[in-house]
């Protein structure tokens, strides 16, 4: 855990830097992919500017090119984005004191990456420590604006370079995201029940991969959370509970 510093915005941006790097190939390839599929440049850019959700944008571009109806694309994107609901609920302690307008803006910038780096500091958030809450809110802005600007710029560069950018899957550049997420999950595995959660998530992810509309992601998430909680309350009850909120 970072000590509270005087430059929370910079702290957030700094901690997000590895994830920004990991997102770069995605932004580039997204721009190039849309180009290659003949989608208008303004459309590609608007997706990154106004939707700002990497996985969903890839799904939309691919499905659109495959001739899927808008309704089906929208449903799939909705299901994929339901995980943001969980992120939002997790982040409630961070934002509940803020005015609605600020919360509305902050909500737009929720991504896997910003959530992942911010969530690591949530346990330090106690009811009365206003200074820490302020620090973490600015930290969130540092992380999210850095991710956002990077995403939009990389999309634009991808569109410009077009088919000079080779296909992502060919070079396997998704690996940057995989190892970055591993770097976030592993330090979070502190209780035995956290390991159970990860194990169930992994197994369920394999078994539900082929489910329609990416429903497997959400299903596996709920299974893993349930397994983690169940094991915490039945198998590992003797262990000291390190969860600072309880």
């Amino acid at each position: 855990m970072l000590p509270i510093s005087n430059a929370p915005y910079r702290d957030g941006a700094k901690d997000t830097l590895p994830l920004v790097f990991a997102a770069m190939p995605f932004g580039l390839v997204f721009g190039a992919l849309c180009q290659a599929q003949g989608l208008p440049d303004w459309f590609t850019l608007c997706l990154s500017l106004f939707v700002y959700a990497g996985a969903s944008q890839f799904i939309a571009a691919t499905m659109l090119a495959a001739g899927a109806p808008v309704f089906i694309i929208t449903i799939t994107v909705f299901i994929v984005n339901l995980r943001h609901l969980l992120y939002g609920i997790t982040l409630i302690p961070l934002v509940k004191q803020l005015p609605l307008k600020t919360r509305a803006w902050m909500a737009f910038f929720i991504t896997d990456e910003t959530f992942a780096v911010t969530a690591r500091h949530l346990p330090g958030l106690s009811q009365n420590d206003e200074k820490y809450a302020k620090w973490l809110q600015q930290y969130y802005w540092g992380s999210s604006t850095f991710m956002y600007v990077n995403w939009v710029l990389c999309t634009a560069v991808g569109v410009l370079l077009g088919n000079q950018i080779p296909e992502l899957s060919h070079y396997g550049l998704e690996v940057a995201m995989v190892v970055a997420f591993i770097g976030i999950v592993v330090p979070a595995l502190q209780l035995p029940s956290h390991w159970i959660c990860a194990l169930v998530a992994g197994i369920s992810a394999c078994l539900t991969y082929a489910w329609p509309h990416k429903t497997g992601l959400l299903f596996s998430t709920f299974m893993a959370i349930a397994a983690g909680m169940w094991s915490q309350h039945t198998l590992f009850t003797q262990l000291p509970n390190k969860d600072p909120q309880s």
Binding site: Y87, F115, A116, I184, V185, A198, A201, A224, G228
Partner: peptide, 8 residues
């Protein structure tokens, strides 16, 4: 458990 579950 959300970060561990989703990211995994």
């Amino acid at each position: 458990y959300v970060p561990i579950a989703v990211l995994t």
